[in-house]
């Protein structure tokens, strides 16, 4: 009985946590909306050079200052959401969908199929993600479809591992044995008995995986190996404005803060929806 109880939450932390619970999903939704409509709601043309100095500070006119060409940063960040959020979302969906499918199949079919897929993907995990990204980009270049595939491939093994372990745990439960003993098909068992019991962990994993993908994509772009000019995601925005760092230009920090706001918001949203324990043990 004690394992289901948690200590009392009172005081300012609780108020903070409660507000956080509302604000964080709002931030996530905001960036999602920007990914779709950002280009049209941007106050200025993201690519247009404005009547301004380079690396201007924050002002009434340019809320987040200007970049190394004198373009409006706010517009560039809002428009860049399309790449950062869009590419990450596609890559994550691809990785999670294939991870769930393979994990389900491995747990329901078992035997040689399970062993072969598990061995292969587990070996892939031993390539650090950034390294894997660099090798893939070195080989295939950095067009957007390649980036999506690259990110999906990098995170597929981790995704498979976690979904397989969730699926195997569900498959070991007696109600699955009952369905087997009844003579139900493997497909029925996968889709009707196991999958519905994986939804929670799958969604939590999707969120965490999305964070990793955003961070990796931003890192690649920051290194100049991700989204290529003239297109610019948030990582590219940091990169192209690095010369402004010695002047403390907001153009360097703001895109990085945009990334942080997205990842932190997703992170805390997962925490409040699924509880803190979901994260532990996720690689």
């Amino acid at each position: 009985m004690s394992s289901t109880t948690i200590p009392a939450r009172r005081g300012p932390m609780a108020i903070l946590a409660r507000t956080g619970r509302m604000i964080m999903p709002a931030i996530v939704l905001f960036w999602l909306a920007m990914a779709f409509f950002g280009y049209w709601v941007a106050p200025y043309d993201p690519a247009g050079i404005q009547d301004a100095d380079l690396f201007e500070g924050m002002s009434r006119k340019f809320w987040l200052g200007t970049d190394y060409f004198g373009r409006d940063m706010l517009s560039r960040i809002v428009a860049g959401a399309r790449y950062t959020v869009g590419i990450s979302l596609m890559a994550t969906s691809l990785a999670v969908a294939s991870g769930v499918l393979l994990g389900l199949a491995a747990s329901a079919i078992g035997g040689f199929f399970d062993a072969a897929v598990s061995r292969f993907l587990d070996a892939l995990i031993s390539i650090p993600s950034k390294m894997f990204g660099l090798v893939l980009v070195a080989a295939f270049g950095a067009s957007i479809p390649v980036l999506v595939m690259t990110l999906a491939v990098i995170y597929l093994p981790g995704c498979y591992r976690i979904n397989r372990s969730v699926a195997v745990n569900v498959a070991a439960l007696d109600f699955v044995a009952v369905a087997r003993a009844r003579g139900e098909s493997t497909l029925y068992i996968m889709l009707r008995e196991i999958l519905p019991n994986m939804i929670g962990p799958v969604l939590a994993d999707f969120g965490l995986r999305f964070i990793y993908v955003v961070l990796l994509l931003s890192s690649l772009s920051f290194l100049g190996l991700g989204v290529q000019p003239p297109q610019a995601d948030w990582g590219s925005l940091v990169r192209e404005n690095m010369p402004g760092l010695p002047y403390g230009a907001p153009a360097v920090i703001m895109p990085a803060i945009a990334i942080a706001s997205l990842t932190i918001a997703v992170n805390l949203t997962i925490d409040s929806v699924f509880g803190r324990h979901t994260r532990e043990g996720v690689r």
Partner: peptide, 28 residues
């Protein structure tokens, strides 16, 4: 094994497990 038995044969033998908690799919 189950694969070698007919549906009728499977029907004739039914198992009731110990833990009702794990024997019933919680999502159904």
């Amino acid at each position: 094994g189950i694969a070698g038995r007919s549906r009728e044969q499977l029907r004739e033998i039914q198992l009731v497990f110990q833990m009702a908690d794990t024997a019933l799919n919680p999502k159904v």
